[in-house]
């Protein structure tokens, strides 16, 4: 999933301070799972904002809605008939949803309600961690199913570097060395000899480096 975290309330207040009619829009997908921008978090944010404006003695209309998704036209369209009642939207979807909302409603200011962090997993309740950076050319087959692009701080293809200590990365004792994991996996799979195969220089043009990306599937286009 796309993992996001809640923005500090002060930041959101700054975003909406100048407005009187605010629509908070949650998303029922990833940000609900990672408890940053679902229905529950929309309600919490709404309460916090109401309290803030009440303390300021300012009358502000704050409404809440949570869409099934904010990365598809059909769900964003559900706002079409009501969005004009507001003068700002705070989207608690990931950055994808915020932008798609802004593209669709060109005259409506759309503010981000979360900080979008990474593509990752729920390690345990309340702990999410990164697994993928969407580099566009998956090489997990060569690295025992552990990704050095997203999990090695230096994204080394032929690691580990000299800073790997007791299974931890040099940047932080709480970060696991990806190459320790890769080597452990290779051992478990009885493929440690694969370690010595040199991984060639990567083509980064399918990653951010190649500019904004697009996947076009003519076979599924209508």
């Amino acid at each position: 999933m796309i993992v996001a975290k809640r923005k500090p309330i002060e930041e959101i207040i700054e975003e909406v301070q100048a407005y009187d009619k605010i629509l908070l829009v949650g998303c029922n997908e990833c940000v609900t799972v990672c408890e940053a921008g679902g229905k529950k978090e929309v309600a919490v944010l709404a309460s916090a904002l109401r309290m803030h404006f009440m303390n300021q003695g300012k009358e502000v209309k704050i409404d809440e809605i949570t869409l099934e998704r904010q990365c598809d036209h059909e769900y964003l369209e559900e706002l079409r008939n009501q969005i004009d009642q507001y003068d700002v939207v705070v989207s608690l979807a990931c950055g994808v949803g915020v932008q798609f909302m802004a593209e669709k409603y060109m005259n409506m200011p759309v503010m981000p309600g979360v900080d979008t962090c990474f593509m990752g997993v729920t390690e345990e309740r309340g702990v999410w961690s990164e697994r993928c950076q969407g580099c566009g050319t998956c090489m997990l087959a060569k690295t025992g199913g552990i990704c050095p692009v997203s999990r090695c701080a230096k994204r080394l293809f032929n690691g580990p570097c000299g800073g790997s200590t007791n299974g931890h990365c040099e940047i932080d004792k709480n970060v696991i060395c990806a190459w320790q994991l890769i080597i452990d996996r290779m051992k478990n799979l009885d493929k440690l000899e694969d370690y010595e195969a040199l991984v060639p220089i990567k083509d980064w043009s399918t990653e951010r480096a190649g500019g904004p990306r697009k996947v076009v599937r003519e076979d599924v286009m209508q």
């Binding site: 580990p160 800073g163 200590t165 060395c177 080597i183 440690l192 370690y195 010595e196 040199l198």
Partner: peptide
């Protein structure tokens, strides 16, 4: 002296192969 120690010689072999 970096970990894991068991790949320290294979890692040198890899650099030599490079």
């Amino acid at each position: 002296f970096a970990d894991p120690f068991e790949i320290r010689t294979p890692r040198l072999a890899k650099k030599i192969a490079a």
